[in-house]
């Protein structure tokens, strides 16, 4: 067992993701040591800021129709142009950031928590293991996007339902990861010792298992966040995602799709934002993995 994994300093290292402003020297040092975390973190914070401060960044109502001003090319007035209903694409893209981030973060959070719960259950209660893992196998054997579309067909489109649908497709990944960690840790002498000493299961989980799953789950959650954003955009693009009344990147692209040849900017701007956001989250995830778990970095 590598000492880094058990190092309690891991938990303390996480907040460093947001660069500390006080000490310049340290920032430069951090950026040098973890370029991926630094670049990814910086870009992610920019995206988060543009979502939070969207109303202050020169936007107008992203849903205001103006058929008379439709399909304007990017200009000083319409920075990213207007779409076929005359809506301002810049405003829509910026407000769309909110939807994407919301979906990404919520899915990552829910999938991690639920997946961790399932993984722990499966790892500790061996009677349930076979059944739970077969269900997870079943879920994993349905291509995620198909499963999400099918789930979306169940319900009326809403951001909440999109989050639920994508979460369900992502849970098995976390559950398997956690179960794997639990199974390997159970073999460890100190855990065996704890069990032999009569320590109750919740305490074992709290003291030994959780600290060791936190690092891989954090890394996994970052990737889930990125992939959830792509799935949301793809769902909306196919027409089975976020309701079209809400500006999301996938919706803007879906609407611009018909005019891709003549007005490529309608698709390009949200595509650019989506790609950069996902890229920066993936960079962040890569960096975190390298920093938190060098062994895992080698494996994948």
């Amino acid at each position: 067992m590598s000492s880094t994994i058990l190092d309690p300093a891991i938990a303390a290292e996480l907040p460093d993701v947001l660069p500390a402003r006080k000490q310049r020297g340290k920032v430069a040092m951090f950026a040098y040591r973890h370029p991926s975390i630094f670049a990814g973190g910086l870009l992610v914070s920019l995206v988060v800021a543009s979502a939070v401060f969207a109303p202050l960044l020169g936007t107008v109502d992203p849903t205001a129709l103006a058929p008379a001003k439709r399909l304007r090319v990017p200009s000083e007035i319409y920075w990213f142009g207007t779409d076929m209903l005359g809506r301002d694409i810049y405003s829509r893209v910026l407000y769309g950031t909110r939807v994407s981030l919301q979906v990404g973060v919520m899915v990552a959070l829910f999938a991690s928590v639920i997946g961790m719960f399932i993984g722990l259950t499966s790892g500790f209660i061996r009677v349930l293991d076979t059944v739970v893992m077969r269900v997870m196998d079943g879920l994993m054997s349905i291509p995620g996007i198909l499963l999400a579309i099918a789930l979306m067909a169940l319900t009326r489109g809403s951001v909440g339902n999109v989050i639920i649908a994508i979460t369900i497709t992502e849970i098995p990944r976390v559950a398997r990861l956690v179960r794997g960690v639990v199974l390997s840790l159970r073999e460890q002498p100190y855990v065996e010792a704890a069990v032999a000493a009569g320590t109750r299961v919740p305490k074992i989980i709290w003291k030994h298992i959780l600290p060791n799953t936190l690092a891989p789950i954090t890394v996994q959650a970052t990737f889930i966040c990125a992939s959830a954003m792509i799935t949301e955009a793809t769902l909306s693009f196919i027409g089975a995602g976020t309701p079209p009344t809400i500006p999301s990147w996938g919706n803007i692209m879906a609407e611009g799709r018909a005019l891709w040849q003549v007005k490529p900017f309608i698709v390009l701007f949200p595509a650019m934002f989506l790609s950069i956001t996902v890229l920066s989250i993936n960079l962040l995830g890569d960096g975190l993995r390298d920093a938190l778990d060098p062994r895992m970095a080698k494996k994948i």
């Binding site: 399909l71 076929m84 018909a258 005019l259 040849q261 003549v262 007005k263």
Partner: peptide, 8 residues
């Protein structure tokens, strides 16, 4: 054909 593609 979609109206907006006619000029093209």
């Amino acid at each position: 054909p979609t109206g907006d593609l006619l000029p093209t």
